[in-house]
Design a protein around this nucleic acid. Structure first.
Length: 480
RNA sequence: GGGAUUGUGGUCUAGCUUGGUAUGAUUCUGCGUUUGGGUCGCAGAGGUCGAGUGUUCGAAUCACUCCAAUCCCA
């Protein structure tokens, strides 16, 4: 009976199917009529808006401003930086017609906006006084994903922000990619309660066209790593072909030093996977569209009036304290239905209020993340809620941190590497500086270097693959 | 990139082998009943059977092409 309304598979048994069901049944997103595209529904969009406003606030403190770029990029521009073009070309959507006519220069639906942004930057930057130029763009990007699409993780169009900065000094640009990565880390930890590991990408995995890429990675419950955000030090790789130049104080022309960086709605996918359970979503309180749901319980009309009146009072008080509260006064479904419904949607706190509670001036208080059920006096419930929302966030984060720590192993042999990998572990293992070792490992196991954390130099060990003297001890995993 | 599976009212589904005008549940609307972990009754609404082409007197059913989705492996 009614089982098919909820999630029909267990997270531990069929992770992939579980994930897809959560996204659709909790009404975060739904499939669009075109392959690889999804529609973001209000609850999903609300979470994205929370992430956006948190990031916007931090970026405004660091002097970044928002702008907007068009979605079409002429082929001639996209091709100006060769590696960049070669890297992206296989997944670019092209516009070749307008109405009945063929277009002369075909147009790309932006897979990323470096080429377009820097064409504009070349016009806007003349003097050292114009630097640094730090603009962030909230938009969508399109990359043709033919196979293995998955909502939020791999779709042909995705929401993201891309920051593009230009600096007079190399050092300043290199500091920028570190600072932004720290802002990303704070956002993911403080809003989504997901612990991340930061560091560098390997040569093989860096952004095409960058000098190097910094990344933050998180481990998902199925043992795959999810790249949660990246910042790229572009050096002068783009400023030269795009002629982004400025006159310094001595009136000498120089190419600018550039960075670009982005996070996408993948963060939402990560949040679903890390925190969700067999009953549905579990939303971190700070991004939950509804933080508290009030379920009134009654039999007679008289009880209904009393319970609803008190419920509205509590709701009003929560509104006044800027807590996102919802009173579920639907009459056509029972409380039991509502419990299941809101649990599937991941609302962090549920308050039950019925005649028995009114009699004793109490409410029943249930936390979504650990199912803990308690009673509290009505007159202090708002204070409790405010405290608990904080605590729930911290609990969710430390639970996730604990799991990440437990599932990180350090080891020395390739056999161990393979067996631990199959257990879904994140592996710290030594490797030499021959790029073919990483290639081979990827070919044979599906895992690659996810992140090279600061201070992981290690020239005392043997490369896990070839046995030569190691150089570093980075983190390996299979990736999304 | 390779493989497997699937598509029938909003949702889940029977029917397909053996071609004859689509079954049940749920949802939705109305009325009543009920409400502390997925209430119940009565009445009503809702389907170009993913799309196209072919075979046929006749196609959800057979054949081919396309579209979309899911899972597994690289």
């Amino acid at each position: 009976m009614g089982k098919e309304i909820g999630i029909t598979v267990k997270k531990s048994e069929d992770f992939s199917e579980w994930y897809t069901q959560l996204v659709v049944k909790a009404e975060l997103a739904d499939y669009a009529p075109v392959k690889g595209l999804i529609v973001l529904r209000p609850d999903g969009y609300s979470i994205w808006e929370s992430i956006k406003s948190s990031l916007d606030e931090k970026l405004s403190h660091t002097g970044h401003r928002n702008g907007f770029l068009p979605v079409l990029i002429p082929e001639s521009l996209l091709g100006k930086e060769k590696d960049h073009f070669t890297g992206f070309n296989p997944e670019v959507f092209w516009v070749t017609r307008s109405g009945d006519g063929e277009l002369g220069d075909k147009l790309a639906l932006r897979p990323t906006s470096e080429t377009l942004a820097y064409t504009m930057y070349a016009k806007w930057i003349r003097s050292w006084r114009d630097l640094p130029l730090k603009i962030n763009f909230w938009n969508s990007a399109l990359r043709a994903e033919i196979k293995a699409t998955k909502p939020f993780l791999r779709t042909s169009e995705f929401l993201w922000q891309e920051g593009h900065t230009a600096h007079a000094e190399r050092d300043e640009a290199e500091k920028e990619v570190i600072d932004i990565l720290e802002i990303y880390k704070k956002t993911v930890e403080n809003e989504l309660a997901i612990p991340v590991i930061t560091g560098k990408k390997s040569e093989k995995e860096k952004f095409v066209g960058a000098v190097y890429t910094l990344t933050m990675e998180s481990l998902m419950p199925d043992g795959k790593a999810l790249q949660m955000g990246t910042t790229h030090f572009l050096g002068q790789n783009f400023s030269k072909p795009f002629e982004v130049k400025y006159a310094d104080k001595n009136n000498v022309e120089n190419f600018v030093w550039q960075t670009s960086w982005g996070v996408s709605w993948r963060l939402i996918g990560g949040m679903i996977m890390v925190h969700g359970d067999d009953k549905g979503l579990v939303l971190p309180p700070r991004v939950a569209p509804i933080q508290v749901v009030i379920i009134p319980i009654y039999r007679s009309n008289e009880e209904k009036n009393m319970v609803l009146e008190k419920s509205r009072e509590i709701k009003q008080e929560l509104d006044n304290r800027k807590i996102r509260a919802h009173l579920d006064d639907r009459d056509q479904v029972t409380p039991g239905f509502k419990f299941n419904d809101w649990e599937m949607k991941g609302v962090p706190i549920r308050i039950e209020l019925g005649p028995k509670d009114l009699e004793h001036d109490k409410v029943v208080f249930v936390r979504r993340h650990n199912q803990l059920k308690q009673e509290y006096p009505i007159n202090i419930v708002v204070e409790i809620i405010i405290k608990e929302l904080e605590k729930i966030h911290n609990d969710m984060f430390s639970d996730a941190q604990k799991i990440l720590d437990e599932r990180t192993v350090t080891l020395e042999t390739y056999d161990d590497f393979k067996s631990e990998l199959d257990k879904g572990m994140l592996i710290k293992a030594p490797i030499c500086d021959n790029p073919s070792c990483e290639e081979k490992i990827k070919e044979e196991t599906g895992a690659d270097i996810r992140v090279i954390p600061d201070g992981c130099d290690d020239d005392d060990s043997k490369c896990i693959y070839c046995g030569d003297q190691s150089k570093i001890r980075p983190l390996f995993a299979r990736g999304y």
